[in-house]
Nucleic acid binder design. Sequence first.
DNA 1: GCCGCTCTTTGCGCTGGCGCAAACAGGCAG
DNA 2: CTGCCTGTTTGCGCCAGCGCAAAGAGCGGC
Lengths: 232, 232
Amino acid sequence: MTLDRSLIAGLPAFAGLEGRDLDAVLARARSSRFPKDSEVFSQGAEASSFFLLLNGHIRVVRTSPEGHQVIARYINEGELFGIAVAMGRTIYPASAVAAVDCVVLTWPNTAWPEIQARAPAFGASAYQTIGTRLQETQAQVMEMSTQQVEQRIAHALLRIVSQSGKKTPEGIEIDFPITRQDIAEMTGTTLHTVSRLLSAWEDEGIVKGSRQKVVVTDPHGLMLVADNRRRK
Amino acid sequence: MTLDRSLIAGLPAFAGLEGRDLDAVLARARSSRFPKDSEVFSQGAEASSFFLLLNGHIRVVRTSPEGHQVIARYINEGELFGIAVAMGRTIYPASAVAAVDCVVLTWPNTAWPEIQARAPAFGASAYQTIGTRLQETQAQVMEMSTQQVEQRIAHALLRIVSQSGKKTPEGIEIDFPITRQDIAEMTGTTLHTVSRLLSAWEDEGIVKGSRQKVVVTDPHGLMLVADNRRRK
DNA sequence: GCCGCTCTTTGCGCTGGCGCAAACAGGCAG
DNA sequence: CTGCCTGTTTGCGCCAGCGCAAAGAGCGGC
């Protein structure tokens, strides 16, 4: 429960915070553990807290009334999430699910005004996070409007790998378990199509896949696919 | 150039602002006119100002490197836009084009810190605007992932009509000029498909279209289409 | 009043990607 | 070790929606 301040203070969300103010912010947080596949918060529930992911990977999922699921994004270590309070929202618009065992800092929403007064840089970081996500989401709309499935999947893989890639002898590996279905839900397609394309790429030596795992063996080749510039 | 304070003060962005603080905020703004089809700001340009639409309708357009255009949203009267500064962005991620002759309030970005200190409610309104747009954009991604073109177009029309609809004897009319191409760029499809569907709907008595104009004559019928629940 | 530009409509053929179905495989529990 | 559960692969047929093409139709400018 005692927080390792030196680790935390290095996160972008706390950039520019002095010792005293940092303490004040951290004092309102509590740290907790979420086992794999557990929900940190649930779509439609009253937003009572906001969060920072200290360790692990979290999947943000929206479910439609008809039951379709879409993965809005993955949260990486050090990122804020569930910051409905900063958007003036009272319910969570999506669910957050631990993709692996996670360690999460939780603040009650009631602490938000105080934190913002005490540590404006922290608030600014939250707003910037939201701004970045708006950007990214709009870029995604653009992709879905103008690009073919193959390019969208290639882009999605490149994005994940650049944010959560782990170097291995074989190439860059996504360092959390991800299914074909997950990739399909990120790109608005079906697991069948994802599976087919990954198989094709594997034949071309661009990626290597196995159960819940994807390794990009030829990032440059994947970029060519993403830009639709590879020789067929 | 003198602003009609009584009109402006009623806008949600200024809710809860006292006379003196309101004056302080407005003092930093200047009002200007943008003729139809002119650009208020341009994608990729350095973000130097933020804006509030007093009158008219504005189209926010993103253009891909390959030249594809996508309409991210329409700005309605009273809304803030181009608020890159509130997202910690330094360039505009899209262009804003006047769909009709428009009247716009412009603030220099340099005024932002002062305004936020002086009138926190104004800042909060900006953040809420961004939050709402993130929500809407994510909902759009969801739609594009899970729904057919016909339903997406129906939803898009319903959204426009609910925000910018004008009652007429025939039904609810979109009160700015909008082409089939525009609708296609909002929904990630082609003008051909839009034209075909609108024609079909016209035969069913749901809408009525003409050059750069769409009138929804049967909103309820259109909702059935949007939910994919109409009898074919 | 005529011309030209932009916007719209419609036909036709094609194909990317989906839906369905079935077989296969890795990993964990018992 | 065995069986089961979850995830993956692959074949096949189909169809929604796109691309292309060409013909109309308002509207503004001259």
